[in-house]
């Protein structure tokens, strides 16, 4: 408890804490749209594809700047997307299998490059290995700032284009019919996904960063039937997960942030699947029980009525 207090009083740590919360918030929001467009796994593919992009960007420039990594990861993400499209178009392989192939291929390459970097003569390579599972506490000031600004920008775009994103998620055909540039909007959503994955990599790591896109959105769906509420809730779950992961990993020294963040998100998921009022298991049981009781009561009432009626006809017949 004492250490938590000192941590929160450390301005450096405060910034890291805020930026990770913002990251969780923006990922949760964007994740809603990719979940509803049935593209959750795409986030995972993009995250794994980012690793070789980041490694190559580092090898070419020799600097560890988030902005350069972002460019490298984005290029890798685009290539991966095209790769998936190419595989599905020119073979009988389905989309999910194609994603699996591309994801593992890129990740394998990334690990090889990472090893090369660590055994090579690259100067300040320390910390690149942190990219696998993330270490929020190791982030430097400029990275923290970039991450915060980018997260806020992502949230702003989702807020401004909420109507468009909602419509292309529900009915892209109708959206095209009323003149929305659907292809552009879809690419934009994909770009937002890449960006949120890449800025999150340092804090949460490539292996698990996609969970921030998937788990909060799925959890939020259990609590509401309205998209607006779902997006806010998902953002909130993401923010809580990011905050919890950062805090715990910073206090219990050396635990990587990514797994802790994901564990927090998963805990929220279990709470949702149990207690969520819309599709939660307990809610379902409760409703079933209530309906059953109502049915039984009406049956009893029906029986009584029938018996009274029968008695009356008997009486009538006797008269």
């Amino acid at each position: 408890m004492q250490s938590l207090w000192t941590l929160l009083n450390d301005p450096n740590m405060q910034w890291i804490f805020i930026s990770c919360t913002l990251l969780g918030l923006s990922s949760g929001i964007i994740g809603c749209f990719s979940y509803l467009r049935k593209q959750s796994l795409m986030g995972d593919t993009l995250a794994h594809a980012a690793l070789p992009g980041i490694c190559i960007a580092f090898m070419l420039t020799g600097t560890k700047s988030l902005l350069i990594f972002l460019i490298g990861a984005a290029i890798a993400g685009v290539i991966a997307t095209f790769g998936i499209g190419f595989v599905t178009r020119h073979s009988r392989i389905k989309h999910d299998a194609a994603m699996g192939i591309v994801l593992s291929g890129f990740f394998g390459l990334g690990i090889v490059l990472l090893t090369v970097i660590q055994h090579g003569s690259y100067g300040n390579q320390a910390g690149l290995d942190k990219f696998l599972f993330g270490q929020a506490a190791a982030m430097i000031g400029s990275d923290v700032l970039t991450m915060s600004i980018v997260s806020v920008l992502l949230i702003a775009v989702c807020f401004l284009l909420f109507k468009q994103f909602k419509l292309i998620s529900f009915d892209p055909g109708f959206a095209r019919g009323i003149g929305y540039p659907v292809a552009f909007l879809e690419q934009l959503l994909m770009l937002l996904m890449v960006v949120s994955v890449v800025v999150g990599i340092q804090a949460v790591g490539v292996v698990l960063v996609a969970a921030l896109l998937i788990t909060p959105a799925v959890s939020a769906r259990y609590w509401t039937h309205r998209l607006g509420a779902m997006v806010i809730l998902s953002g909130l779950f993401g923010a809580i997960s990011g905050a919890a992961g950062t805090l715990i990993s910073s206090t219990a020294a050396n635990l990587p942030t990514g797994p802790l963040t994901v564990l927090a998100a998963t805990a929220l998921f279990f709470l949702s699947i149990l207690f969520g009022p819309q599709k939660g298991l307990l809610a379902k049981q409760f409703i079933r029980l209530r309906v059953k009781r109502k049915l039984e009561q009406s049956q009893i009432r029906g029986n009584v009525k029938a018996r009274v009626a029968a008695a009356e006809t008997e009486k009538g017949a006797a008269l």
Partner: peptide
């Protein structure tokens, strides 16, 4: 345009009024 009903996922988190409002977008 009224597309075939099967063209969308009806499990989307929204209500009837909201879908109709999309006609004004």
């Amino acid at each position: 345009y009224v597309p075939q009903r099967e063209s969308v996922d009806w499990d989307f988190p929204t209500n009837a009024l909201d879908v109709v409002t999309m006609g004004r977008y």
